[in-house]
């Protein structure tokens, strides 16, 4: 090795470092905002969860009392399990409903893909609050469905099972999060090499076998991404259970909100929020791990 090559290497290194420095400088304002508005508040929330509060005075001696409360009180377990069950069902139903739709756009639509994609994502961008509210008036006791069926003479009495229960929460959420299911699944279907499908057909697979042996496994990354994008936020949803859930549809987020509102126990609310987030993250990681094992580490 000649000395000049060594010098060149060093110059190269310096330039690379310089480039890294410029990269850091450029991203630092964004990073700062995210750290200041998300990371710091989250750490504060963690701190709060180890503090305690009596009436309005905050006691900053560290205690595990809040977590002990969360771990031992049945009401929190019930609500947490219900939230996870509802979100899990919502995720399953939303993904199952969205898959054929994404499949249709990826494989059957030839000319106007862009139009279809805009059409499918448009409802997602309109006000979440208004969409949930709309389901409330559709499913209500004197709502659109009941009054419609009654004026058509199909039913004599309004159907009671439509609103204020887990069913209405699931329908509303499956509608609200549809775009988060369609887009990732569509992207992974679109990426599939079409020659693989032809190969499967040439080698004698029928359409059904081909779907389960080629298309579905190859689209699993999209399905997993969609599941996580829906499951994680819906566990913490607060608007939907409040507007359409009734007493049977109350979820963990309602209790967390109450601790910061009427009940006025921020430390306990923080402990509930942190526990929920950790549990949801654990469930999400477990799902990814299982899915990866199940489908044989598809990339």
């Amino acid at each position: 090795m000649t000395p000049s090559a060594g010098l060149l290497d060093r110059l190269h290194l310096l330039l690379a470092r310089h480039e890294a420095l410029r990269g850091y400088t450029l991203i630092s304002p964004t990073l700062f905002v995210v750290l200041a508005a998300m990371a710091v508040p989250l750490m504060l929330m963690v701190a709060y969860s180890f503090w305690s509060q009596s009436y309005v005075t905050l006691d900053t001696t560290l205690t595990l009392k809040n977590y002990a409360d969360v771990a031992t009180r049945d009401i929190y377990h019930t609500l947490f399990l219900r939230s996870v069950m509802i979100s899990g069902l919502v995720t399953l139903i939303t993904v199952l409903l969205a898959y054929p739709m994404a499949y249709f756009v990826a494989f059957d639509v030839k000319k106007h893909k862009l139009l279809w994609l805009i059409l499918l994502t448009l409802p997602f961008w309109t006000s979440y609050l208004l969409r949930v509210f709309s389901w409330k008036v559709i499913l209500g006791y004197n709502g659109v469905i009941n009054s419609g069926l009654m004026s058509l003479g199909v039913i004599a009495e309004p159907l009671q099972f439509l609103l204020y229960n887990p069913f209405s929460v699931i329908v509303t959420l499956a509608h609200a999060w549809a775009a988060f299911a369609i887009l990732p699944i569509y992207v992974s279907l679109e990426k599939i090499d079409r020659t693989l499908l032809e190969a499967a057909t040439d080698l004698g697979d029928g359409p059904v076998r081909r779907f389960f042996r080629v298309t579905l496994p190859l689209s699993m990354p999209g399905v997993i991404a969609a599941s996580l994008l829906i499951f994680i936020p819906t566990v913490g949803d607060y608007v939907t259970p409040t507007l359409v859930g009734g007493t049977g549809g109350v979820m963990i987020a309602n209790i967390i909100q109450a601790q910061f509102g009427k009940a006025n126990n921020w430390p306990l609310g923080s402990a509930l929020a942190i526990s929920t987030m950790l549990a949801v993250t654990a469930i999400a990681c477990l799902t990814i791990w299982l899915a990866k094992r199940g489908t044989g580490a598809i990339r």
């Binding site: 991203i27 990073l31 989250l42 994680i232 913490g236």
Partner: peptide
């Protein structure tokens, strides 16, 4: 760093809102 910047997308809004309220 990119992951951190995109993280608000997967944190429930109620958590983002309440933690900011604490701050």
């Amino acid at each position: 760093i990119f992951g951190l910047v995109m993280l608000p997308l997967v944190i429930p809004e109620i958590i983002l809102g309440l933690s900011l309220l604490i701050l």
